[in-house]
Simulated assay, not measured.
Amino acid sequence: MARRKKGRRIDGVFLLDKPQGLTSNSALQRVKRLYDAAKAGHTGALDPLATGMLPICLGEATKFSQFLLDSDKRYITTAKLGVRTDSSDADGEVVETKPVPSLEWDSLNQLIQARFAGEIEQVPSMFSALKHNGQPLYKLARKGEKVEVKPRQVNIYEIKLLDLRDDEVDLEVHCSKGTYIRSIVEDLGLELGCGAHVSMLRRIGVANYDAAKLLTMDELEQIAAETETDQGPECIQMRLDALLLPPWSAVDSLPSIELPADLAVRLLQGQRITELFDERGLVRLFAEQRFLGMGEVEDTGRLVARRLLDTSEGAQA
Results as ranks from 00 to 15, higher is better:
K213L: 14
D187N: 05
V283Y: 05
L285K: 02
D230Y: 15
V173G: 04
K160F: 04
A287K: 02
A212C: 15
M238T: 15
R203Y: 04
Y180T: 01
R202K: 08
Q231F: 15
Q289H: 14
L244I: 03
V169P: 00
C175P: 07
L240Q: 01
C194L: 06
A207P: 02
C175F: 05
T179R: 02
D187H: 01
E221K: 11
K213P: 07
G193W: 04
A211K: 11
G195V: 02
G195L: 06
D163G: 05
R239T: 05
L220D: 04
A212Y: 10
Q222E: 12
D210C: 03
M217R: 05
R272Y: 10
P247T: 04
R272D: 10
A264L: 01
D170W: 09
S253K: 11
L161E: 05
Q237T: 10
E279S: 11
C194P: 01
C194Q: 06
A250T: 02
E275A: 15
K213M: 14
D218P: 08
L245I: 07
R266Q: 14
F291V: 00
E186D: 14
R239F: 07
H197S: 06
T179M: 08
E221G: 12
G270Q: 10
F277Q: 05
E228S: 11
R203W: 00
L254I: 08
D241I: 05
A261Y: 13
D167E: 12
I223R: 02
R290P: 04
